[in-house]
């Protein structure tokens, strides 16, 4: 068994003539918190989408959790996502007509079957025990992001992906969300890959890689955590 949960070799992704990701070799050991930094257009979101099975690479190898993502069919990828990955979006992407708890149950539905008690428990863990029946429109940005986190962790994923999770939040909410993620990671022991352009947010991770123009330019290890 490889000690790495993610292993890429010469991973590329191009859209027509534009090469979003130049050949990239990356290893992520299990349980690591990896921050990915770069300007917009540097290929960091592309990397995250590839690793999360949302997109397919155009070349190279990609192993996530021992699964060769290049070999999976469309439905196979969907099954991989539901069992293995939790995703937190910058735009939250909550279903507007469902309440907070129902949004969490949606993830349960695709994974196996809805379980209301468990969903409630998950929302209580992110501190939203009092807003179960509110729709996304009635929640603040920070609260919405916490619903999103509850939804991402409800199926006990091995890999948690954050695509600028704090991009739309003010400073206070950002700290709250990051604290929460750290706490949850302590309990659930999932691997985190977080895309951000904020130095302070990146500093929460164990390791930061910098991408520029689709290439890995710098890597730094945080020792303070």
């Amino acid at each position: 068994m490889s000690p790495y949960i993610i292993e890429t070799g010469g991973l590329t992704r191009s859209y027509g003539d534009i090469c979003a990701l130049k050949p990239l070799d990356l290893q992520v050991p299990e349980g690591e918190w990896l921050s990915v930094m770069g300007h917009s257009g540097s290929g960091k979101s592309t990397l995250m989408n590839l690793v999360g099975g949302l997109d397919r690479p155009t070349g190279g190898t990609l192993q996530v959790g021992g699964e060769n993502l290049l070999a999976l069919t469309e439905d196979g990828l969907a099954r991989f996502r539901r069992n293995f990955v939790g995703i937190i979006f910058q735009q939250h992407h909550l279903v507007p007509y469902l309440t907070a708890i129902e949004n969490v149950m949606m993830a349960q539905y695709f994974h196996s079957m809805p379980d209301e008690a468990e969903a409630r428990h998950a929302l209580e863990r992110v501190g939203l025990g009092h807003r179960l029946k509110n729709r996304p429109g009635e929640l603040s940005g920070g609260e919405q992001q916490r619903v999103c986190i509850a939804r991402a962790i409800i199926n006990s994923p091995k890999l948690l992906l954050g695509d600028e999770p704090t991009g739309n939040l003010d400073h206070k909410s950002t700290i709250m969300v990051m604290e929460l993620l750290k706490e949850l990671r302590g309990e659930e022991r999932f691997t985190v890959i977080m895309v951000t352009h904020n130095q302070d947010v990146a500093a929460w991770g164990d390791r930061t890689i910098h991408l520029d123009d689709g290439m890995l330019v710098r890597e730094e290890r945080m020792n303070c955590q």
């Binding site: 349960q108 994974h111 196996s112 079957m113 379980d115 468990e118 428990h121 409800i154 199926n155 006990s156």
Partner: peptide, 14 residues
């Protein structure tokens, strides 16, 4: 203990 695993098993049985 893990909810997700529990659900998976139950859903599979159903």
């Amino acid at each position: 203990r893990q909810g997700a695993q529990r659900r998976k098993l139950l859903a599979g049985a159903l």
